[in-house]
């Protein structure tokens, strides 16, 4: 790889003035990845991704009622079984008058005309999707359970999350933020195990109390929602 490619994507203020679009490549570019890849990253960080190549399209879970919006409402969306539903985003069944919501939410083209370059938008609905869509929440549950059962100190587990999600380690400052989130969540769930259990869902860890797992899931959800996690830099 060339020296130019290996530059940092950090923005220096003087470059912002001289070359805001980075035409002269004084730094590496930095952009949010495509919709399908966001899904792939989540599934991969969760250890859920199923890498089978080829075959028919898949139908991951979708909110009920979305299939009624278009004219051909009789075409039912039957959710694929595991592990099929964890295949990469490029395999998701695509219907032009009723596209899969989380794909178009992140600027996937509607496949009606050629789109030479995708937009990269940044919206509150995207935040709601990666925070609350059951598909993404399941990824946090899986990652959170991995963190809960991983050995060592809480800080060591955070480093495990950093390595898996961001391919780097957390700074002390970052550790502090996430540890305080972990403690606050555990404190909140400790007295309400029934609620913790609902958050943990199918991802309860053997021999670990659900309040602890729930707190790690909250940490996992935070890490998976970082700008850096969905950004190629």
């Amino acid at each position: 790889m060339s020296d130019t490619y290996r530059q940092s994507s950090r923005l220096r203020s003087e470059l912002a003035e001289i070359d805001p679009k980075n035409r002269l490549l004084a730094r590496q570019s930095r952009f949010r990845v495509e919709s399908e890849v966001i899904r792939d990253l989540f599934l991969d960080a969760a250890g859920l991704i199923y890498h089978r190549i080829g075959g028919p399209t898949i139908h991951p879970p979708t909110p009920s009622g979305t299939e009624d919006l278009s004219f051909k409402y009789k075409t039912r969306w039957i959710v694929s079984d595991r592990p099929e539903r964890y295949r990469r985003g490029m395999y998701i069944h695509f219907k032009r008058t009723n596209p899969y919501p989380s794909l178009t939410m992140f600027d996937s083209p509607e496949s009606n005309v050629c789109e030479a370059e995708r937009n990269i938008s940044n919206t509150p609905l995207q935040a709601l999707t990666t925070l609350n869509d059951p598909v993404f929440v399941e990824c946090a549950q899986a990652l959170g359970r991995d963190l809960a059962v991983s050995p060592g100190t809480p800080t060591a587990r955070l480093q495990f999350a950093a390595a898996r999600c961001l391919s780097r380690s957390f700074s002390d400052e970052e550790d502090r933020v996430l540890l305080s989130l972990f403690r606050a969540e555990q404190a909140a769930y400790r007295d309400d195990l029934a609620t913790a259990r609902r958050f943990v869902g199918d991802y309860s860890a053997k021999s670990i109390s659900d309040d602890v797992t729930a707190a790690w899931i909250a940490v996992a959800l935070a890490v998976l929602n970082l700008d850096e996690f969905v950004t190629r830099q």
Binding site: S64, M105, L125, L128, T129, N132, T195, G201
Partner: peptide
Amino acid sequence: GDPVLYLSNPPG
């Protein structure tokens, strides 16, 4: 359900 997709927090 939710007036906007994914408006509700996850269960729990």
